[in-house]
């Protein structure tokens, strides 16, 4: 979901999904608060954080939903895919199991998320390369076959975390811009000129 509201040019909702223990919560805390905690607690249900970024002249608020990785209670967690403008599917490069689950996560987001939602595949824990189990080439091939972008990150070293989110946001903006043309035809608002927003409905939601 891309929302335009009074305070921001855009509000976008992102979701972080992937197996348990791959580092989703730390990617989130690194991206939103520049924090890393190697002993962070298990996420139960969903967690949430925001960060405001500037892209060109546009001020954008990213709402990021961090979901629990375990298979249980998925009926509840799935609901959080709805309206997401993009997803990061995360695996741990030192865990083949977590990589093998990507297909399942992909299926889930495509089933419960909005159609055609941009997805970036993230191989996390790249600082532990001596323990690597998933070769870059394997991950890249998988990403290519499924038309996903692939990036390796280290939340610990703060390496590529920013880029991973930027990758995704750029994709979202690109796909949004295409839709946005149609939007402009029916509503006269532009990102820069916000004067007409005050008397409009608070949000313009584009799914």
């Amino acid at each position: 979901m891309v929302t335009i509201d009074e305070e921001f040019d855009m509000v976008i909702k992102l979701v972080l999904i992937g197996d348990t223990g791959v580092g989703k919560s730390n990617l989130l805390s690194r991206y939103t608060r520049d924090e890393f905690n190697s002993e962070s607690k298990t996420t139960i249900g969903v967690d949430f954080a925001t960060r405001t970024i500037q892209i060109g002249k546009k001020k954008m608020k990213t709402q990021i939903w961090d979901t629990a990785g375990q298979e249980r209670y998925r009926a509840m967690t799935n609901a959080y895919y709805r309206g997401a403008a993009g997803a990061l599917i995360v695996f741990d490069i030192c865990s083949l199991n977590s990589f093998d689950s990507i297909g399942r996560w992909l299926q889930e987001i495509r089933e419960y998320g909005d159609p055609g939602v941009p997805i970036v595949l993230v191989g996390n824990k790249f600082d532990l390369k001596h323990l690597r189990q998933v070769p870059i080439s394997t991950a890249e091939l998988f990403a290519h076959e499924n038309s996903l972008k692939y990036i390796e990150t280290s939340a610990l070293l703060n390496s590529n975390v920013e880029s991973a989110f930027q990758f995704l946001i750029t994709e979202i903006i690109n796909s949004f811009s295409q839709v946005h043309k149609d939007i402009q035809e029916c509503t006269p608002l532009t990102f820069e000129d916000r004067s007409d927003l005050s008397f409009r409905r608070k949000c313009c939601v584009i799914n």
Partner: peptide, 14 residues
């Protein structure tokens, strides 16, 4: 065992 080993090191470490 895999799930357990994912969570044990994140148990109340504070």
């Amino acid at each position: 065992m895999r799930s357990i080993d994912k969570d044990v090191p994140r148990t109340d470490r504070d």
